[in-house]
Write a protein that binds this DNA or RNA. Structure first.
Lengths: 336, 336
DNA sequence: TACAATAACGGAAACGTTTACAATAACGCT
DNA sequence: AGCGTTATTGTAAACGTTTCCGTTATTGTA
């Protein structure tokens, strides 16, 4: 409890505390002999540098803020794990905040984090129509988004190629013989979902098949939403042979609704997701989906942020990672 | 980028910066008039208090450290979410670290966090035989564990009553007519798993049925481990009518193995888990299990930590929350 | 009117570091 | 011997707050 400081060490070492500081910081302007002596003393006295004091003078904290809408969603938590682990290898700790899918809360925690003097912020934004209101915030501290961003407000972000991903998915379904494909999406106020929808729509056009879109009034792609949408859909007459969901969680909810409605997957209807969260690999779920390269995204995000911290005045950066198809058992080929 | 400080505000307000400080901190020794004037000015100038500087003089950071073995496990991530949200309502931010189930890494990040001057640490420990090696660490900063702790080294912790939970589970299976119950557990070097096993064992004895225990050589209760254990089990002759798993993730893995081995749940064998992670409610899984009250545990943990921060010299505290039975569809009653 | 009490504010120290600058010592060179 | 270098160390300022203490102005009281 009685924390030992630089001064304490200096006192018993009989040197000035600048010397002690130099010993620990690995400064060259100190003799090897005294360095060893002091380092040994530090160990003995149980000295740990106070990084708050250090941050005070160095003007940076070596802390990154992370804002996520939720941690219950495996997509977020898996990403968070990668983020934290990689950031730590680069000497940064993560201060994590839930925005709970709340737009105001998101802004609030953002400000909170800049007050905390984080060196930068990584943010998985809740769905926004526009990023404009965030600009006042992001000008305060280097920020990178994980997810697409509005074109009219270029910012730094890394993302999977959502448009391409849905194209891949749609084409896959088409190649299986499906001509009537229903798209299940959340409300499109998020750029991510807009791009996914566009990917589907444009591919339909290219393939000359008619698009069918069902969009939830909710903005979140949760299991509950998928369950509700699926329930309603299956309770009415329907003729689509495949359902393409904007997110795995949605698909898992749909699967649940299908199960309860007695429609079998993939026998009666094929089902695809997007994200490739770990649970979609469960044999009971076994969802064919589009992969997001989580770890790559995490690494790219912190690298990008690091870059912007070093070089805040640089051009806005973006990195769009390629998605890939993960074939499992939730889709079947249509006999003619 | 040119951050505005107290002094800047003071300068344009024409007061000393002590006055500005008083205005924001809500000190009584300032006139309402100047306070309003200064607060308005702060808004205009976009001043945000530097909490690093504040921490420097106040000697606390209002930051809690959180150490978890993993975030991929829904048990951890759900808990983490609750922890963060509740801590924030109490004015604390969370610095999250993965120990990656690595004993040495756990100690390393612990030290890292105390260097960061966190006011306290909440820790979900990787399984330990003994907490003794941690004592050197926990003496440095108030710590509360989530999970049972060694009896010989009393520490602060909150936990679900693991013993009682397994007792409930075993009795439930018994009440369904099962007399031959297999216990699937991870290697027992964690107190949690020890207590769960004991709960099973003692209940077997009470009920006069013979216990059957299969323990993994791995310490983690992951889906992969459950899958491997289940695969091996189902590939040999077996006669147990029910399998009781030490954790939901384990059970989900077993379920996968059962599926592939052609054994149907609950028709051929009943299956129970422990934890009640959100995914166990999926209709495709629908696992009967024992509930851990996540939110209660989260709230209790930060309250307990807050308490110890205020009062470091107090008695060690512990809180054991009652588990409850969650009946779903993975167990069936045995006809005689 | 004089004086004590109080309200409002300013000055300055302190928190534990880093670092620019100054100081000293040791050394090599001419 | 004197001087410039260099290596090593010390001194002190700075980072942005909070807070103790002192000062001034204002008010109330006798």
């Amino acid at each position: 409890m009685p924390t030992v400081t630089l001064k304490d060490v200096a006192k018993v070492a009989g040197v000035s505390y600048a010397t002690v500081s130099r010993a620990i910081s690995g400064s060259p302007e100190i003799s090897e002999e005294t360095r060893r002596r002091i380092l040994k003393l530090c160990k003995e006295m149980g000295y740990t540098p106070n990084s708050v004091a250090r941050s005070m003078v160095k003007r940076h904290t070596e802390i990154m803020g992370l804002i996520v809408p939720s941690l219950n969603n495996p997509f977020m938590s898996e990403l968070t794990a990668h983020l934290e682990i990689y950031a730590r290898t680069r000497g940064y700790n993560l201060m994590v905040c839930n925005s709970s899918y709340d737009y105001d809360l998101e802004k609030e925690v953002f400000s909170l984090l800049v007050g905390r003097q984080v060196d930068g912020i990584i943010m998985i934004p809740v769905g926004h129509e526009s990023y404009e209101p965030l600009n006042a915030l992001t000008s305060q501290v280097p920020t990178v988004f994980i997810s697409e961003n509005m074109k009219d407000y270029p910012e730094n972000y890394v993302s999977v190629d959502n448009h391409r991903g849905m194209q891949i998915a749609t084409e896959y379904l088409y190649s299986l013989g499906h001509r009537s494909i229903l798209y299940f999406g959340a409300r499109s106020d998020s750029k991510t979902h807009q791009l996914r929808l566009d990917g589907y729509l444009s591919t339909c056009e290219k393939l000359s098949i008619e698009p069918h879109v069902l969009r939830s009034s909710y903005t979140r792609s949760s299991r509950e939403v998928g369950y509700a949408m699926g329930g309603e859909y299956f309770s009415r007459p329907h003729q689509e042979t495949a359902i393409l969901c904007a997110a795995d969680m949605l698909a898992i909810g749909v699967m649940q609704a299908a199960f309860e409605a007695g429609v079998r997957i993939p026998k009666d209807v094929s089902l695809m997701g997007f994200d490739n969260i770990s649970f979609s690999a469960l044999p009971q779920i076994d969802l064919t989906t589009v992969n997001q390269p989580f770890q790559q995204m995490a690494i790219a995000s912190v690298d990008m942020l690091l870059d912007r911290i070093k070089n805040p005045r640089s051009e806005h950066a973006k990195l769009i990672l390629p998605p890939s198809l993960i074939v499992r058992k939730s889709c079947r080929a249509l006999g003619k």
